[in-house]
Design a binder for these strands. Structure first.
Lengths: 157, 157
DNA sequence: CTACAGTAGTTGACAAGACAGATACTTTCA
DNA sequence: TGAAAGTATCTGTCTTGTCAACTACTGTAG
């Protein structure tokens, strides 16, 4: 991603660099704004979103983990913190005493809705104007697979 | 970045999600491979690349910091570690006793060249096949600004 | 039943970064 | 010349996330 060393002039190289640089340049600012106006991190927003969208506003740890980019233990920690903030709550799963439901609280719902509204506006402000509508559409279409295709892209080696 | 809550159907929203998801799904695997075959992290590669491309193979800490994608803060620590690995070396700047040159060593050059060759191949393998050539080109063109435009995109608030 | 493999989640130890002061110089200007 | 302000880098400390090991339970097979 860096090093203009010996790069082949292949199309994928430029598109990769574009993605990496765009991501790096936008995410900081967007995360900072989220933190500022809603007091939560992007990781929180992500988890809250999964729960918000889940049937019955709840998911098992494993579900949560599979749908996000965290490892198992990472998710434990994140949920710990979100729980401390009172935005989610752990509940026992009837019939499986190993398991845990993570349930979004009503405070969590309120926080998520408000945060998401402003977050969406942030993205528009920070990122929306960087390209024409046609370009945005081209990128969106080309990268559609990334969030619709459930398969991991590469084998875990 | 998640939460299919109340998102406007704006074009920029999908393109943003595409970028975030693609980045997340690719970077892990690519970083893992880099670590595996070359024993360095993406942060190392990034820094080594900046130095490799710099006139005289050296940069001041501040330059390095400003140009780095992966570590916008804490360059001291990163350089500490790269130096421990023998890939760079700190030198005094004649005429400014506050300053430090970070110079890539010959071992650093060798490591960087080999790592970058394989890294490029990794990107091709992991990312190249996810889209058609036309799509790659479309994304690359649309995101061209991200790595050519020097300005930070949003004011530091 | 009971032993054993498998599953769910947490914990301890640690690595990487972020942030807010320190520290050590340099420059400016009265 | 001698503050005072500015610059370059480092340090202490906290946060976040990973990995490997651990606890606790479940399901299955003899």
């Amino acid at each position: 991603m860096t090093g203009e060393a010996l790069p082949p002039e292949a199309a994928w190289f430029d598109s990769w660099r574009g993605i990496v640089f765009t991501h790096a340049r936008m995410l900081d600012e967007i995360g900072r704004r989220l933190e500022q106006h809603s007091g939560i991190s992007l990781a929180f927003l992500d988890v809250l979103g999964r729960l918000y969208d889940a049937p019955d506003r709840r998911l098992r740890m494993q579900e949560l983990q599979r749908r996000s980019l965290f490892t198992r233990s990472g998710m434990t920690r994140v949920v710990d913190r979100i729980e401390e903030a009172g935005l989610v709550q752990r509940e026992r799963v009837p019939g499986d005493r190993r398991g845990v439901w993570v349930v979004i609280t009503s405070k969590g719902v309120r926080t998520y809705e408000a945060a998401m509204r402003r977050h969406t506006r942030d993205i528009e402000e920070v990122f929306g104007g960087t390209m024409s509508e046609a370009e945005h559409r081209a990128v969106g279409d080309a990268l559609w697979w990334a969030w619709h295709d459930e398969e991991p892209v590469a084998p875990p080696a």
